[in-house]
Design a protein around this nucleic acid. Sequence first.
DNA 1: TAAACGTGGGG
DNA 2: TCCCCAAGTTT
Length: 330
Amino acid sequence: MDWYDRNARIMPWRIGPMQKMAGERPDPYHVWLSEVMLQQTTVAAVRAYFERFIARWPRVQDLAAAADEAVMAEWAGLGYYARARNLLKCARAVAALGGFPSTREGLLALPGIGPYTASAVASIAFDEPATVVDGNVERVMARLFAVETPLPKAKPELTALAERLTPQLRPGDHAQAVMDLGATICTPRSPACGICPVMSLCQARAQGIQAELPRKLAKAAKPTRHGTVWLARNGPLWLVETRPMKGLLGGMIGFPGDAWDGSAGEAPMQADWQNLGEVRHTFTHFHLILQVLSAETKANPQRGAFVPLDPDSLPTLMRKAYDLVRETVA
DNA sequence: TAAACGTGGGG
DNA sequence: TCCCCAAGTTT
């Protein structure tokens, strides 16, 4: 805690130790929004998104009243789009409740809030001594106590260790302290043990195995899939469709495509399709090589609709295809 | 329990 | 170029 009081990272959604001393309290809406954005996502990537969301929807009630398409478009590029769909569901539930539940248990019942986020919001925004376990905490616990069991099997053991360290006083700051430590000193590769405030307590360090922990099971290799997208333009309008609410890029705008499984797909209309080449993209569990076909046409499409398109509202894969067409056809 | 689910930066 | 991995949740 002493280290955190002097070294806490400054972030737009955080009330730092000095600010808290001056009486400022974290806004549960800010804490929740940032925590959802930070799920499997770097602080650097989240910053700008957080600022835009707060500027556009200053209170959870504003977000609850937003149009689905507006929220999905604002989330575009951040990834894991189920988070944005659940974000809206959650905001609307919270607005209906008249505010955020103030307990971990109450938060856990909301869409998109799992064990980590429930503990984070409960401890940071409401001072509940709930134990926060994210990737940082897992790594710090594994090293501090030299846990050699590989993840994910070690998760319960690491959680129990983190619970033992969770204080009744300032539990939210303690959680953020461990996460900051993990993010800046106890890093996955080449940890900076020389400047670590708990170096003398670290069992992995004592054994010289800190860089090997936490151990992890080997991951399956990613297969490569192939597919096609059709980018049809009618003057300033582009042919797009909203993807199904479930599955990959669910709820996001996209260009019509095939199944991305190598099977022969059908173009959305007859047109003078030109093959502009390919776009490569890697998702969580597969590589994708997408052939990009483009045409200028006034024909009536069998799928989607011609609309004015803001390229910033596209998920990154679709944005790559769009950029290829703009570069080539320009 | 395991698989699905994005993206960008760093080594 | 390729793999790791980042404040995980849902099904």
